[in-house]
Design a protein around this nucleic acid. Structure first.
Lengths: 216, 216
DNA sequence: TTTTGAAAGTGGTCTGGCCACTCATATCCT
DNA sequence: AGGATATGAGTGGCCAGACCACTTTCAAAA
């Protein structure tokens, strides 16, 4: 099996090892020399696999200390991929649309959930909206979390990074009004309105970014 | 600058080289030995960078031939999603909802696209619907493709596999009626109806699977 | 007890080599 | 002459061994 490409087997083996041995983020994994021997493979080949995993942000290596399993939320993947891939307008558009798709679906889910739409979260939101340092991203992330779909949340998280911090910065006074409208619609479980308002804000923000040339 | 981690510099250098020399997808990039020399770096280090890029799907290496720049659109974003995000215990429900989400969004996109909703594809569909061997999966996949969002298509494909062939089998006569309704709605660009009908079918099918215990 | 420094362990890198494979070219046989 | 075959150059895949730079540890020295 697996004709050529030993390093790919190693990537898989390491992944399996991490699962089976229940290695948690932050834990140390065996040294390169040790792994190379147990896997019956040259150290350079093993390193090719490790470097790949490191570029993905799955592991973190510290000279003189060892190799550690890192928190997957810190992956550098998006950085690398975006610098290579995002020259393509179609890709850029696809990412935006897909991200927006998950966001709107989250709002839909929240509105359909009787309990969620009556939570105190909304009051808390409004309070924070008045504060100085309310970040756009907090607003959207909270919505994603409240949707209850963890898979969707994770996909959204990756896409967000991939498109280069689309929600960077704090909200302006105009945006506060928009957000209040969205929250109000959610509270009365009016999904259509909430989504329409959100979409309008989302696309306004996107145009704003393009105008300011906020691309990497 | 960039103390330690030469291979990261190389990743960047290669990217710059690709841009400046206007290397297009499918083109061949210099050999490992050649690159190593021009970049004043050992071949093993150079290889670590190349393997990383390969794992991301940015380049393609063929033994005996060389290294080639691969199509940006083949980036491994979704594959990464699968290994890093899908690995932990996700409920079937999350996967189902997210898959359905992408499907409904595809229908929405098709309906909003004037050209797509007037394509001949629909006639072709109807013809095939009458045939014996019409697979459920063909129907949905075609919709995903027609949506035009390749990223969404990839995510859908992944989720479909992950949930164990939800569209296995051929359509029954009852389903043919459902599908005809969906197609008709799409043709008159009635997204709401099309989505509602699709959702009904999708959830009916899901219940059918649960009843038959068709889980992987 | 505190400081120091040597040793062990680790990742980072390079060199040089061998193998397996592809391809273009030259050569040989019919 | 034309088609099959052998050869050699070029390429990626892999390995062993060697340094280097760095962090940790712990025992010896102050």
């Amino acid at each position: 099996m697996s004709q050529s490409k030993r390093y790919l087997d190693i990537v898989r083996d390491i992944r399996d090892m991490i699962r089976q041995e229940k290695i948690k983020p932050g834990d140390r994994i065996p040294s390169e020399r040790e792994l190379a021997e147990t896997m019956q493979v040259g150290r350079s080949t093993l390193r090719e696999a490790l470097r790949s995993l490191e570029l993905l942000g799955l592991i973190e290596t510290r000279r003189g200390e060892g190799t550690f399993l890192s928190d997957y939320r810190n992956h550098k993947l998006v950085e690398v991929l975006s610098t290579f891939v995002l020259q393509d307008n179609q890709s850029h558009e696809d990412v935006f649309q897909t991200r927006q798709l998950h966001e709107m679906a989250a709002i839909q889910a929240i509105c359909e959930n009787e309990a969620a739409s009556q939570m105190r979260v909304w009051d808390s939101f409004r309070l924070r909206l008045k504060g100085e340092s309310f970040q756009r991203e907090d607003f959207v992330r909270e919505l994603m979390v409240l949707s209850g779909n963890r898979l969707s949340l994770k996909i959204w998280f990756l896409l967000k990074q991939y498109s280069g911090n689309p929600y960077e910065g704090t909200v302006s006074s105009e945006e506060i009004d928009r957000m209040n409208d969205i929250l109000t619609a959610i509270e009365r479980q009016d999904a259509d309105t909430a989504i329409r308002e959100f979409k309008a804000w989302s696309e306004w923000l996107q145009k704003e970014r393009v105008r300011n040339g906020n691309y990497s």
